[in-house]
Design a protein around this nucleic acid. Structure first.
Lengths: 174, 174
DNA sequence: TGTCACGGTTATATACTATAACCATCTACT
DNA sequence: AGTAGATGGTTATAGTATATAACCGTGACA
C-alpha cells in the first residue's frame, strides 16, 4: 500500500568499512528474477539505517494516525501549541527546525480545519499568539491516544530499555 | 548556514506518555524573545527523535560528501551497482525502497556525469544491466574514503559499542 | 498465438525544504 | 522625536523526494 519495504543487508557484526572496493560477485548478476543483492558496506552505515528506520517510522505514524489525519509535523505543532499556549510562530519553527516561510501554509491548514487559531499578540503586535481551539484540543487528545498506542507497538519491538537506549543514542547524533 | 539546529526538550528519563493534556504553563507565553518551549511528551517520542537525527545525518552526509557531490541515494546506488555489477534497475529499487519511476532520472544523472552506464541485458532484452564506469569507480572510491571519515566522527560520538547498539535498535524498527 | 506478467519509461501530483524579497512593527540610539 | 536596524510574519519561487497511473517493448507460458 504505502511503501515496499526495502530489503536489508546481512548486517554482519563487523565494525567499519571493510569490503573496500571489489565487486566480489561471480559474473554479472542477471537472469533470475528477485535477485538478492549484496549490500556491501551499506548494511553497516548509520546514515542508511537511519534513513530506512525513519521512512518506516513515518509510514507507521501515518497509518496509526489516519483516523485523525495528522502528519508528523502537524502533530508536533499541535502538541507544542498545546504545551505553550500563546506561543509565537517563530518559536515553534525554531523548536522544530522548520522554515518560518513553510510554517505559514502549515498553520493555515490547521486553522482551516478549525484546530488552531492565530490571535493578536498583546505585547508585540507583529507576532501572533497561537492557541488550540476546543476542537483542536479534542483532536489532539485523540491523537495522543493513537500515538501512545503506536508507541506501545514500538516498545514491543525495542523493550523499554532498548527504547531509552535508542533515544539516548539518537540524541548523541544531533 | 544549512539548518538551524532544532532545540530539544529536557528529555527526562521517564518512560512513556505522562503529561497528558494540560497546558501547565503560567499565562500566555509571550513578550520576551527566544522563549524556551515546553516540549511535553514530544521529547520522548521515538519518531520525533528519529526525524531530527535523520535530518542532522543528511546534512552531515552532504557536508562530508560535498567534494564528490553525491546525495545519499546516489551514493547508495553507486555502492549497490559496484557490489552487484550488471544488476537490474528494479532490483536496486527494491533494495533501497525507491519507486522505479523515480529511479529513471536518478540514474540518468549518474549516467550524464559519466559514473554509471546502462548496458543491454543479455538474457532479458527488457532489462538494462547497470555498471560503473572507471570514472564511477574512482569517484566511489573517493566517496567511500570521505564516508569512512564521516562515520569516524559519528563513532567518536557514539562509541563503537553505541554504534553497534544503534544499528541493532534501528533494524528492529523495520 | 494470445494472454498475462514484468522491466523500464513518461507524465503528473503532492509534500518537504530552502531562499529571497517584502511589509509592519518593535528596539535602540542619537 | 526621529531614524536605522532588527524582528515576526507573509508571499513567491525553486529544488528535491516521493507516489500513482498509463504506456511500450519484451518474455513466459498455456
Amino acid at each position: 500500500m504505502k511503501s515496499g519495504s526495502p530489503a536489508r543487508g546481512t548486517s554482519r557484526g563487523a565494525s567499519a568499512a571493510d569490503s573496500k572496493l571489489k565487486a566480489s560477485n561471480g559474473g554479472d548478476t542477471n537472469g533470475a528474477a528477485a535477485t538478492p543483492l549484496r549490500f556491501g558496506p551499506l548494511a553497516d552505515y548509520v546514515g542508511y539505517a537511519l534513513r530506512r528506520a525513519q521512512m518506516s517510522s513515518v509510514t507507521g505514524f501515518l497509518d496509526a494516525m489516519k483516523e485523525v489525519d495528522l502528519r508528523p509535523t502537524q502533530f508536533a505543532v499541535l502538541t507544542l501549541i498545546n504545551e505553550n499556549p500563546g506561543v509565537r510562530q517563530n518559536d515553534i519553527c525554531a523548536a522544530l527546525g522548520l522554515q518560518k516561510a513553510n510554517f505559514v501554509p502549515l498553520l493555515n491548514e490547521l486553522q482551516r480545519r478549525g484546530l488552531a487559531v492565530r490571535k493578536e499578540g498583546v505585547a508585540d503586535r507583529r507576532s501572533s499568539a497561537l492557541h488550540l481551539t476546543p476542537a483542536g484540543m479534542t483532536l489532539l487528545r485523540r491523537a495522543l491516544e493513537l500515538h501512545t498506542e503506536w508507541e506501545r507497538r514500538i516498545l514491543a519491538r525495542l523493550g523499554t530499555r532498548g527504547r531509552d537506549q535508542l533515544l539516548v543514542l539518537l540524541n548523541k547524533l544531533l
